[in-house]
Amino acid sequence: MKNANAPVAGATSRYQLISHGVDPQNGYGDLLDSIRSRLSLAGDLPGVTVEQQIRLLDELSACELGRFLLENRGLNAYWTHQLVTYRQGQASTDSVSDMEYRIFEKLPAVLATRERFGIFRQQLQALLKPGLVLASIPCGLMGELLLLDYDQQPDITLVGIDLDQHALNGALELARERGLADRLSLRCEDAWTSSLQGEIDVLTSNGLNIYEPDNNRVTALYRSFFDILKPGGTLVTSFLTPPPSLSAESPWNMAEIDQESLSLQQLLFVRIIEAKWSAFRTHAQTMAQLVDAGFADIRFINDRGCLFPTVVARKPF
């Protein structure tokens, strides 16, 4: 597979990013006014007044990550990378705002996705063998692959696919920092219609299915991944599980989840931001979708709270 030191220009204009993107018709001030109006009309929540909700909105708006979330209702490659590579205890309330501190240090979904990132890296590191081709879709900044140890694997090839040109640029920059740019090929393509066919040994994918509510579309995504892999290839992916308030089949381990932080998360992500990453699925649903797509030897690795499980599956020979 040909390596490239620059992202390939592609079809971003033909497809729509489902994870983030600002509405160009509205200014930021208008956006805040519309959220304040929506919160006021919705009224108080049990134990949380409208005034308290608007104060949280103002706190979000005062920090860079909060503003991005309010504008986009999702995360891009840069902010995802910042959240998953952040070291617990790195910040203090003296160095960042109280809102930023609570997002990075306390919110259960953030802690779960950071733990998921660590599980991905463990699984991927264990899969490394000489001569393999590894890919990430959507790649974002590609930290789950670019931060692995390749000292004993000099002939590994890396492929990143994303619709977001900014993500591809960021992946290239990180690859250069890691001394891996000469192994890297980047493609601006849609995950459902990738041009790769039977070329990848190990494929990793995180953060796309959680924005897609259509179960048939997610199964189609897994079929695309199946086609991309070589026979015997491995998929490492993940999914968001439903909270107990939405499903009796919720696997959440509430003993591992701080209730105060969970309540704050609900206020921020659901009530105020109206985050797009709300496509929850159970282990059984995910298993059925992967089996439908052709995968076998499917195993789950749960984070402590069981919010964001990792899945490892194999394409049969």
Results as ranks from 00 to 15, higher is better:
52 Q>W: 09
38 R>D: 14
180 L>D: 05
163 L>A: 07
88 Q>H: 13
116 R>E: 10
128 L>A: 02
24 P>S: 11
164 D>Q: 13
46 P>V: 11
282 T>M: 08
129 K>A: 13
143 G>M: 04
34 S>R: 15
205 S>V: 13
242 P>L: 02
154 P>Q: 11
69 L>C: 08
138 P>R: 02
32 L>G: 08
194 S>G: 13
218 V>N: 03
60 L>F: 05
255 A>G: 11
179 G>I: 08
6 A>N: 07
24 P>W: 06
220 A>D: 14
145 L>W: 00
232 G>S: 10
100 E>P: 00
98 D>N: 12
144 E>G: 13
172 L>K: 09
226 F>Y: 15
196 L>K: 01
280 F>H: 00
30 D>C: 07
250 S>L: 11
244 P>E: 10
60 L>V: 09
313 A>E: 04
209 N>L: 12
291 V>G: 04
201 D>C: 09
159 V>W: 01
121 R>L: 06
249 E>M: 05
225 F>K: 09
280 F>E: 01
200 I>A: 09
208 L>S: 00
148 L>P: 09
181 A>L: 03
189 E>P: 06
184 L>V: 04
284 A>I: 05
138 P>G: 09
270 V>T: 10
283 H>N: 11
89 G>P: 01
95 S>R: 05
112 A>D: 11
72 N>L: 03
114 R>A: 12
276 K>M: 00
73 R>L: 01
232 G>V: 10
91 A>T: 06
179 G>Y: 06
75 L>Q: 07
124 L>K: 08
263 S>Y: 08
216 N>Y: 02
171 A>D: 07
238 S>G: 10
245 S>H: 02
239 F>A: 05
22 V>C: 02
53 Q>K: 14
305 G>V: 14
92 S>F: 09
179 G>D: 01
74 G>E: 01
285 Q>N: 04
153 Q>M: 15
256 E>F: 12
96 V>T: 09
137 I>L: 13
283 H>K: 15
151 D>T: 15
92 S>C: 13
281 R>K: 05
268 L>S: 03
224 S>G: 14
133 V>P: 01
203 L>N: 06
67 R>F: 02
312 V>Q: 14
82 Q>F: 00
310 T>P: 06
316 P>G: 03
262 L>K: 12
41 L>N: 14
291 V>E: 15
94 D>K: 07
121 R>E: 05
67 R>I: 07
249 E>T: 04
245 S>Q: 00
143 G>H: 07
300 F>N: 11
